[in-house]
Design a protein around this nucleic acid. Structure first.
Lengths: 337, 337
DNA sequence: CTTGGCACTCGGGAACACAGAGTGCCAGGC
DNA sequence: GCCTGGCACTCTGTGTTCCCGAGTGCCAAG
């Protein structure tokens, strides 16, 4: 029932609507795309497409606009991801290569993605889960306080100030540090709780309360930061676009870590390029917006996700190309450091 | 020429305009504030105030609106900072006290301030300049790479990956680490370059190239991060307000670190509560917005600044109270950690 | 199945009128 | 000399009406 020409019509509608932001009528379609048929025929096709829910008209006697279902079909079957130009690739590469630490990588990535897509970019910090302990450092701040620093092989640094239950001199701290490092070095973060479990037995009784305090902080920092930090950039790009839902709602959603998390994530397959269109996304405050996201990470391990958020009426092929490319380059950068 | 009653009229105009967002006329003024005179008299006063540039009318036969100069006079002489309720104070205190590290402090602060003022909040990370070295850590990542970590007494952690000019075994790294820590411990960051200058001489010749590389990274991390990180929150609060300038411009300015920097800073006296009204601010893209900012920091040392940005038409007494209070509490928190 | 023709619908812009708020000015009163 | 009530004038914003044009659905013919 949905033959090739109807699909071509749908594709043409999506493309025209994306570029003009106005409902597109049968005559305009016949003019701009050489479909080889008359406007009347296109009208018939459009009637069928509307019947099946792929397009809709804002009001009687206006042109047609793609529905979420229409965009979905377009993304799945009618378009292919558009690769970036080689100039763009080089620009990305050199921009990301300048990053000095993990914060810088994330910051640069999110800005880059925002600029590239002219949408709002969202980047999740690399998860700790797949990292391994590189080093543990204990730095005395005062008699009863010390700073606990955990460095992972992904270049991330976790820090906590620990209040001690008792006075600990430099020597005891040094001993504890040595024990921790021998025990944990190279250990995957998921394995830390196991390794840590029997540590107290290997210490002298008087050190145990001290160790227990520090270990509890260590464990806490692992689970607590499990749901990660997320940053966004490019909010200015929202100013032009008009959403069916208010701009305010979108901005509010962007500042809610939890919401962002759900938008990006919730996919079993981290590596796939996923597209959530309009009502498909899990947050009712974001009707009228789509999310294009991809996983990134070094090697086989997907560390986290990144993506962009924009109006449902976006240029999916280009956006998907940009997201995929940035995800790949970030992965490279992280693998190299 | 500008007698008390005229000042009272100006104050009334500012207050009414802030609360209603509509040009205020003589009759409304006479009704809502008991100034003890008739609308006609108020009209005369308004004519004088307009003559002197404190107020203006958007169009003939519309009410009056304060000019930037009018707000300035209001802030300087006609208002006093409104302290927060004790309930608000308690809420601030407990919210900030939950922070686990410096990132968390900044994040919580900016969100708190945004929520409290219903404006966009901006917080600058504590500067390194006034901090002292607490500890330097060198963590080998591979034969030719190591991670350099600098921990300061303000709880901030700087990290860099360093590419080495030659293979460095564990022992050499340990030696270097020891030398660095003995030399730098407790040293103010501004004093680091001096202390570091004669370090190479105190090392064996074969260690010098290695040391030089690491030291150059160290020094670089000090100056490079001198212009600091800035974060903002509460962009959603902009959605309601309408600026004379477009919303897009405001959002763009917010994402430009450099611009934000200039908005907050550029005051010799870090500690003062400063207000920049409309055209007073140094960035032309932000006509129609005001900035209320204050310094914060532990003890005598002002570490950085924080503030809010909103439409010129804002409730200055309340906003100033909130900014001042938050700055104080953050200072307390930082002093305690 | 496609095509041209045709009547119908509806949104958006232009033209217009009108009410309401606010002003400036003037003459009279304290 | 300053304050006050009165009055004529000037705007903006809003509501109304009207009309044009784009676009549709349907139908009969190729």
């Amino acid at each position: 029932m949905v033959d090739d020409r109807k699909l071509a019509v749908l594709r043409a509608i999506v493309e025209d609507y994306v570029s003009t932001n106005e409902p597109v009528g049968s005559k305009a379609l016949a003019d701009r795309h050489n479909l080889g048929v008359s406007p009347a025929t296109i009208r018939n096709d459009m009637a069928v497409l509307e019947e099946q829910g792929y397009i809709a008209q804002p009001h009687t006697s206006a042109g047609r606009v793609p529905t979420d279902k229409g965009y979905r079909l377009f993304v799945d079957r009618l378009s292919q991801v558009k690769p970036l130009s080689s100039a763009e690739r080089r620009a990305i590469e050199s921009f990301l290569a300048g990053a000095v630490d993990i914060d810088d990588v994330v910051m640069r990535t999110v800005r880059l993605l925002a600029q590239l897509t002219r949408q709002v970019a969202v980047v999740q910090y690399p998860t700790l889960t797949n990292s391994a302990v590189r080093h543990v450092e204990l730095v005395p701040l005062s008699e009863r306080r010390l700073m606990f620093v955990l460095i992972t092989n992904t270049g991330r640094v976790e820090q906590r100030v620990v209040e001690l239950p008792e006075v600990a001199d430099e020597q005891r701290v040094a001993h504890l540090r040595a024990v921790l490092n021998t025990s944990l070095d190279g250990c995957g973060l998921s394995g830390v709780p196991d390794r840590v479990a029997d540590l107290p037995e290997r210490l002298s009784p008087e050190d145990r309360p001290l160790a227990a305090t520090i270990l509890s902080v260590l464990l806490e920092s692992l689970v607590e930061r499990h749901d990660e930090k997320i940053v966004f950039a490019g909010a200015a790009n929202l100013a032009g676009a008009d959403f069916t839902v208010g701009l305010r709602d979108v901005l509010e959603a962007l500042e809610e870590q939890v919401v962002l998390m759900r938008l990006l994530g919730e996919t079993s397959d981290l590596s796939a390029l996923t597209v959530r269109i309009g009502s498909e996304n899990p947050y009712t405050g974001l009707q009228g917006t789509s999310i294009v996201a991809a996983g990134y990470g070094s090697g086989d391990k997907q560390l986290a996700r990144l993506g962009v958020l924009g109006p449902t009426r976006m240029d999916y092929p280009v956006t998907m190309g940009a997201v995929r490319a940035v995800a790949r380059y970030v992965s490279q950068i992280l693998a190299a450091s």
